[in-house]
Amino acid sequence: MIRAFLRLLAYISLSLAIIAAVLDAARSVGASRLVMTSLRDSWQSFSPSTLVPAEDYIRSHLYPMLWDPLMLWIFETPTFIIFAALAFVLYALGHRREQRAGRFAAR
């Protein structure tokens, strides 16, 4: 049950990564230069009222020194890369491993 939920989240993340990549590609064609939207910019355009509370929560509840090196780097990374990596991790966690023994092997 949990593996199926993780795979569902992986598929949703992959869908969001593809949508973000297509939007960046369309913007790049329109601007005649490479355009990659950062996660902060995407979040700001999608839900600006939740960005500041999320930043405050991360700063206060998680290790404060984690904010500067890691979270700032994540927020400046292109959106499609973040969602593609998240999809990969979620799918790896929800992957059903094949049995080592063959179909007709004795167990």
Rank of each mutant, 00 (worst) to 15 (best):
R103C: 05
S42F: 07
Y11T: 00
I81F: 13
M71L: 15
Q44G: 13
G94K: 05
L70G: 09
L66I: 13
A92L: 13
M36R: 14
T37Y: 01
F75I: 11
S42W: 05
A4V: 03
T77R: 09
L34F: 03
S28M: 09
L14T: 06
A20W: 00
S42K: 04
D41L: 09
L9G: 08
I2V: 07
R7V: 02
R103D: 12
Q99D: 14
P53R: 13
R40H: 13
S32L: 11
L14C: 06
M65D: 13
A54I: 10
L51V: 15
P69T: 10
A10T: 02
A85R: 02
A84P: 05
L93Y: 12
E76F: 08
P78N: 02
A25R: 06
H95I: 08
V89C: 07
T79K: 03
S60T: 13
S49M: 11
D24Y: 03
R3C: 06
A26Y: 06
G30K: 03
R3T: 03
R59V: 10
A101H: 12
F5T: 04
L70I: 09
V35P: 02
V35E: 01
A92Q: 05
M1V: 10
T79L: 08
A25P: 04
Y63D: 14
Q44C: 04
I81R: 07
M1G: 07
Y11I: 04
A10V: 07
I2N: 08
A54W: 14
R100H: 05
A84L: 15
A10M: 07
V52S: 12
S47N: 15
S49P: 02
M65P: 01
R40G: 03
A105E: 15
A26C: 11
S47Y: 12
A54G: 10
R97C: 00
M65T: 12
A10P: 00
R7F: 00
L93M: 13
V35S: 03
S13W: 01
H61Q: 13
S47C: 14
R96M: 02
M65F: 08
S38D: 08
H95L: 06
L39S: 06
M65S: 14
A26E: 09
T77S: 14
R7K: 04
R33D: 08
S49N: 11
A4W: 10
F46H: 02
D24I: 04
A21T: 00
L23M: 10
E98M: 11
L6K: 09
F88D: 00
I81L: 15
L16I: 04
V35N: 01
S47M: 14
Q44W: 15
L62R: 13
L93D: 08
H61E: 13
F83K: 05
L51H: 01
L86W: 09
V29A: 05
I81H: 09
R40N: 05
A84C: 15
R97D: 08
S15W: 04
R96L: 05
A101I: 10
L72S: 13
I2T: 10
T50Q: 11
A21S: 12
S42E: 03
A85G: 14
F88K: 01
Y91E: 00
P69N: 07
R97L: 10
I12C: 04
